[in-house]
Amino acid sequence: MSAHKLPTVLHALLCSVALVVASVAQAEIRVITTTPSLADIVKQVGGEEVRVESLMSGRANGHNVIPRPSFVMKLRKADLFVHSGLDAEPWLPNLVHSSRKIELLPGGAKNLDVSTGIRLLEVPAADELTRAMGDIHVYGNPHYILDPMNGAKVGRTLAAKLGQLDPDHAATFESRAIALEEQLTALTARLADDVNALGLCSVVTAHRTWSYFLERFQIKKLAELEPKPGIAAGPRHIASLAKSMKQKNTRLVLSATYGDVRSAARLAKAVEGRHVILAQEVNALPDATSYISLFETNVKLLVLAAQEIPIGDEGCP
């Protein structure tokens, strides 16, 4: 190599090194979430600065997941692990221990429990807690993500954490979380109008999955199909429930894509009503491709079902 070419080569080398360093500095934050809904919120808040993947599929029952080997390997490479907290995902402790990464342990730098700051429903009183209450969640109902305004709170929690991991983009994450909150607030108001226009007397839900959703959209719950959480409904219970539904002019039975879907359909048939399968998660139903479209899809399904069953002259007794 001639001497006059040396500076050029050195310059090229330095530029290459600088490019590599820059690309490392701007590397995406690898985020693993337990559920697709959390993954979508991460995507909204993190934008191009994150690469996110959900462990669970949309149709899975989060309480009953068998961790796959790939879960461990994905978790080990994560910069951030986002989960629902509480006792929503009882398979997590084994999974996190299997990853052998101290930062992923509860309270660790890469472990984010997004239930922090959420107002929980159906929290059992400590002195009343017993297995006679069924497969009860001891900290309260963990399906809080089905209230869009809780999704907004999760967005804020995520923005704060992502800002710690990537301080250069902290303001961007925060502004995206605010934008998401505004979007969800407007969505909630619009969908609430749609639901109010239905004049629903009340509904029956298969499980306690829908408590937050019903509260947000002010839909009255008559009863649950399960006599107690996790306990399958028997024929006598279904018959008794059908009688109450007829008395209260309640015709809709709501369920998730998992659980005792057959009994829910049987109950709806007994009252000449409709069984509506809603999306409990992003991707649980084909149209629920994002956190926002999850609510749009669910309200649309409710509207369609309610329109098929006019309330009639008897109103809501």
Partner: peptide
């Protein structure tokens, strides 16, 4: 070997 039905992971495996 473990299999779960992706369309009904809660009820068929």
């Amino acid at each position: 070997w473990l299999w779960r039905d992706p369309s009904a992971p809660d009820t068929r495996s």
